[in-house]
């Protein structure tokens, strides 16, 4: 899980992979057609089927797989669009960002100074408490 841009880039790459996978599936598992009246579909014995280039799936399985592949493609595309629209800082220009960074830097300095001050105050309070306790312990 990287930043948004990397997620987007990965999603685009996945889309490309899905393209290839879809075509590959259709190429391997489509049904066989006769091109002319004298053609015949040769039924290949089961054990040899693995070595064949085309391994026809039954009509309904093939259709369902096609629909699933298509649906996945659409989902991926919508995912990509969503990722695009939530890219960070779309409405910030470079100048905005620089100004922002500078302001934050100043604020950080102030906050850090305040923190140090608070620590000092805490130590003073501690010292005060310490003296009080000591004076009580030794009447």
């Amino acid at each position: 899980m990287g930043d948004r841009l990397t997620q987007l880039q990965d999603a685009v790459d996945q889309l490309a992979t899905q393209f290839v996978a879809s075509i590959n599936y259709i190429n391997q598992h489509h049904s066989l057609e006769t091109l002319g009246p004298r053609d015949q579909i040769v039924v290949i014995p089961k054990q040899e089927a693995d070595q064949q280039e085309v391994d026809p799936h039954p009509e309904d399985v093939f259709r369902a797989a096609q629909i699933e592949l298509a649906r996945d493609l659409i989902t991926k595309e919508q995912q990509i669009e969503l990722l695009i629209s939530i890219l960070p800082g779309l409405d910030n220009s470079e100048q905005d960002q620089e100004r922002n960074i500078r302001e934050l830097e100043e604020e950080l300095k102030v906050a850090e100074a305040q923190r140090q001050e608070a620590i000092k105050e805490r130590e003073e309070a501690l010292a005060k408490l310490d003296t009080v306790i000591r004076s009580i312990r030794r009447p």
């Binding site: 800082g89 910030n92 922002n100 305040q114």
Partner: peptide, 20 residues
């Protein structure tokens, strides 16, 4: 580069919040 600056901003913001 834009995203890198954007992450820097958010990191600084959280640092600021933490310090405060």
């Amino acid at each position: 580069p834009h995203q890198a600056r954007e992450s820097l901003i958010s990191m600084m913001q959280s640092q600021l919040d933490r310090t405060r």
